[in-house]
């Protein structure tokens, strides 16, 4: 049986006091490590607990892997205690810790498809889809704040050629926001665009996170790129702005 030092595990997971690793279960065959984390118990002389432990509620999240080993954290959280900033914790109801959420979100932001995220990060489609669904419903992305101020957006010429898609406005073109905000009245003939636009608009009403809003804009742009050949009527109107 393989034994791991709990203190080492705590360091690998960047868990700091007053939290401690209570237990772990490592299954090399399944390439999975489950780790139970809880607040440190104050102990007196002779190792007895100094005061009774607070009631807790256990939340589980998938965390960043350690090499090829999937890491699942089960954290005993005292109720009502929010621990912002701890990357090894997650938001209630989300499948991933903040640390893993940031990584997944960064991939979405780079245009990586959901399926590729699953493959590259060794994540289940169900969990990634749950995360994505939560974003679409207005939950925060968990993305880390930018370390420096983002450079100002320089307006580009609207019809900067997309390689292979010259008729689709660049993602930075303000026409997309106008379309999403219904400031641009578009005569739409394609059913899928009508349905998709409605869905994205209603999702944006719930989403306050700018990064997630950008993600939705990318989705709409991707739709136009994929269906460029059948959207000539709609793209002509976008061109006229």
């Amino acid at each position: 049986m393989i034994s791991i030092d709990k203190a080492l595990l705590r360091q690998l997971l960047l868990i700091e006091r007053p939290w401690e690793v209570r237990e772990y279960r490592f299954d090399p065959r399944k390439r999975r490590c489950d780790v139970w984390v809880a607040p440190e118990v104050e102990r007196g002389w002779f190792g007895r607990e100094r005061k009774p432990a607070l009631p807790t509620q256990t939340c589980s999240w998938r965390h960043l892997s350690i090499g090829p080993i999937q890491c699942h954290l089960h954290v005993a959280l005292p109720p009502g205690q929010d621990q912002p900033g701890l990357e090894w914790l997650g938001e209630p109801g989300m499948p991933f810790t903040r640390g893993l959420s940031q990584r997944v979100f960064a991939m979405f932001n780079q245009g990586v498809s959901l399926q590729s995220v699953c493959t590259l990060m060794d994540l289940s489609l169900q969990d990634v889809w749950r995360y994505r669904y939560a974003l679409d419903s207005g939950k925060p992305s968990g993305a880390a704040p930018a370390p420096v101020a983002a450079p100002p957006v320089v307006p580009r010429a609207p019809w900067v050629d997309e390689p292979g898609h010259p008729n689709v406005p660049d993602l930075t073109d303000p026409v997309w926001l106008r379309l999403l905000n219904a400031d641009l009245g578009l005569d739409i003939k394609v059913l899928s665009l009508k349905l998709m636009l409605t869905r994205v608009r209603s999702q944006l009403e719930l989403i306050n996170d700018d990064e997630v809003r950008l993600l939705k804009l990318r989705e709409l742009h991707r739709y136009f790129v994929k269906n460029e050949r059948v959207l000539t009527h709609e793209l002509a109107q976008l061109r006229q702005g």
Binding site: S113, L114, Q115, W129, R132, Y133, D136, S192, L193, L195, M196, R199, R222, Y223, K226, N227
Partner: peptide
């Protein structure tokens, strides 16, 4: 309930 939110929904016929 959920189809409108499925990945690639509306992108593929």
């Amino acid at each position: 309930r959920q189809a409108p939110s499925y990945e690639d929904m509306y992108l593929k016929p």
